[in-house]
Design a binder for these strands. Structure first.
Length: 261
DNA sequence: ATGGCAGCTTTGAGCTGA
């Protein structure tokens, strides 16, 4: 089974790339972030006509997450629990029924948090606390679980081409990295680092200053696996070539392959 | 040292992203 995550930076701008990637990668499910549109404006018809099921949790202008899958997503949850006043569409969760069992899957768009000296940073840290609390509840189910998305967290210096440039950034500040470790320490496995120690693996390259051409990237899109999912981990890949397509997203897809149960 | 791009909306200058 193949599960992918991709921050598309506007699903309407990226529809062509999205359909191409689905055809090329043939995932069982693809988590999307940064739809930048309301549910009514999501290009649902085009994706369904290509043979996919679609669940969305959209928002006007900003944020928005979705899960595209071959089989229909069940037990769908929209929004991260823990703050009824939070109106930002950053979390979508459901259960994928499979021939050999089920996998619970979440599409996550964790807040950026910049600039750190504003209310945006405590919002990010609080969101991470809520995610950790919710993940703890999900882990109690002792089932295959994949928490996939744009975490806006650079876990370690080796996950940035120029770590010194990020030391004062919300993506790399010590409280951010500490909160990410706290999430992992619940018992989750970060899929890519379970398979390789190679530096220079990135999932985001800024549009500015020739970041892509200079390979000045950061690794901020992650898939976290419960023990029951990690036991089945067969491989991880970063679809780096997608960043070279015409009019690309600034993020590329990340994929995990899980063995059958 | 700085800004540089892209996408959104109040459709055009300002916000946001990372």
């Amino acid at each position: 089974m193949r599960i992918a995550t991709w921050n598309v930076n506007s699903v309407r701008q990226r529809l062509g790339h999205l359909l191409d990637f689905l055809k090329e990668a043939e995932p069982d499910a693809l988590c999307l972030q940064e739809l930048k549109c309301m549910d009514a404006d999501f290009p649902r018809r085009e994706i369904e006509e290509a043979g996919w099921q679609v669940e969305t949790h959209g928002q006007k202008t900003f944020n928005g997450v979705a899960i595209i899958s071959r089989s229909k997503l069940e037990d769908v949850r929209r929004g991260l629990p823990g703050d009824e006043s939070d109106e930002q569409a950053r979390y979508l969760e459901g259960v994928l029924p499979l021939g050999t069992g089920v996998v619970r899957l979440a599409s996550i768009y964790l807040p950026n948090g910049n600039p750190p000296n504003t209310e945006k940073y405590p919002y990010k840290l609080n969101w991470m606390r809520r995610l950790t609390a919710h993940a703890k509840e999900l882990l109690a189910h002792e089932e295959p679980l994949v928490l996939a998305g744009d975490y806006n967290v650079i876990p370690e210096p080796r996950d940035a081409r120029e770590p010194a440039a990020w030391v004062d950034d919300a993506l790399f500040l010590p409280p951010t990295r500490s909160a990410f470790r706290g999430l992992i320490n619940l018992g989750l496995t970060e899929a890519l680092r379970a398979t390789t120690d190679t530096p220079g693996l990135y999932t985001f390259w800024d549009y500015q200053a020739g970041a892509w051409q200079r390979n000045n990237g950061i690794r901020i899109d992650h898939l976290l696996l419960s023990p029951q999912a990690a036991d089945r981990l067969a491989g991880v890949s970063i679809a780096k070539h997608v960043r070279g397509w015409d009019k690309p997203s600034d993020h590329v897809p990340v994929l995990v392959e899980l063995r059958p149960q």
